[in-house]
Simulated scan of single mutants.
Amino acid sequence: MSRAERTGGGRGRLGQTLSSVAVAVGCVLFLGGFVWAAVLYQPYTVPTDSMAPTVRAGDRVLAERVDGDEVRRGDVVVFLDPLWGNMPVAKRVVGVGGDTVKCCDEQGKLTINGEPVDEPYLLQRERASFTVFEATVPEGQLFLLGDHRDESLDSRTHLEDANNGSVPREAVTGRIDATVWPPGNAGMIERPAGFADLPGGVSRPGPLAATLLAITAGAALIFGGAAYGAIGSVRGKRAGLTHNGGTHG
């Protein structure tokens, strides 16, 4: 066997090894990403337009499974509360225990403890609410509003109920991180900067972006490794045919 043949064979075996490793790592990342997402997230279909334009009726979203104590102002959460019909509801948290939530100031903005809050996610931006209200949120409770304030049945509707229309933190079952369907509405749900300067700030982004990165990287390694292995195999066969042809020629 010539030196060129030995070198070519060594490179071929190395290529096949690298291809196999890439596919194996890709499978771990790809499948692991899906398992991780299934453990951390729950799918939810939004039934109404009360949270438009952030999420619309019929949108399929992913809600991170979080404890109610992790929720911050600005989060879009899914919760269950008997006073709200005991069915999953999606709303935005605007006030937490101890806050005084009021609407509206002279500029038509929502205020938290007297501080106006910018809400660029609202469907109608000229006024945070056409219903004038003021509520103090009890400790351990959350005050929730829809982004489509004209159509949303939220804490304003329940002001006469116990706890000034708020719901307990333990009623929260998830925090919505992204819309995944339909494709035209797909995207991450950003944490609003308007609440960032208030005590407690806003919550950190969830792990969904890292999960999607792992799945995407895994898919790339699987396809890339498989393609590299196939190309290497074809080249090896061609090299063998050329060698055999030269021997018998």
Results as ranks from 00 to 15, higher is better:
1 M>C: 11
1 M>K: 12
4 A>R: 11
4 A>L: 09
5 E>T: 13
7 T>G: 09
8 G>V: 08
11 R>W: 14
13 R>G: 05
14 L>F: 06
19 S>W: 03
26 G>F: 02
31 L>H: 05
45 T>N: 04
46 V>G: 09
49 D>Q: 14
52 A>K: 09
52 A>R: 08
52 A>E: 08
53 P>H: 04
55 V>C: 13
55 V>Y: 06
56 R>C: 10
60 R>F: 02
60 R>T: 06
63 A>G: 05
63 A>F: 01
68 G>H: 05
69 D>R: 15
70 E>T: 05
70 E>R: 11
73 R>A: 03
74 G>W: 01
75 D>N: 14
76 V>P: 09
76 V>N: 04
79 F>H: 06
81 D>E: 07
82 P>H: 03
91 K>N: 10
93 V>C: 13
93 V>I: 10
94 V>W: 01
97 G>Q: 04
98 G>V: 05
100 T>Y: 03
106 E>G: 13
118 D>Q: 07
120 P>C: 05
121 Y>S: 04
123 L>W: 06
124 Q>R: 12
124 Q>M: 10
126 E>K: 14
128 A>Q: 05
128 A>I: 02
136 T>Q: 15
143 F>Q: 10
144 L>P: 15
144 L>A: 11
146 G>Q: 00
148 H>Q: 10
150 D>Y: 05
150 D>W: 05
151 E>L: 12
157 T>N: 06
163 N>G: 08
164 N>C: 09
168 P>R: 03
169 R>I: 02
170 E>Q: 13
171 A>D: 10
182 P>W: 00
184 G>S: 13
189 I>E: 02
191 R>Y: 06
191 R>A: 15
195 F>S: 13
196 A>Q: 14
199 P>V: 04
202 V>L: 12
205 P>A: 00
208 L>H: 03
209 A>Y: 07
210 A>H: 09
210 A>D: 07
213 L>M: 04
216 T>A: 14
219 A>C: 11
226 A>C: 11
231 I>A: 15
232 G>H: 14
240 G>T: 12
243 H>T: 08
245 G>W: 01
247 T>Y: 05
249 G>D: 13
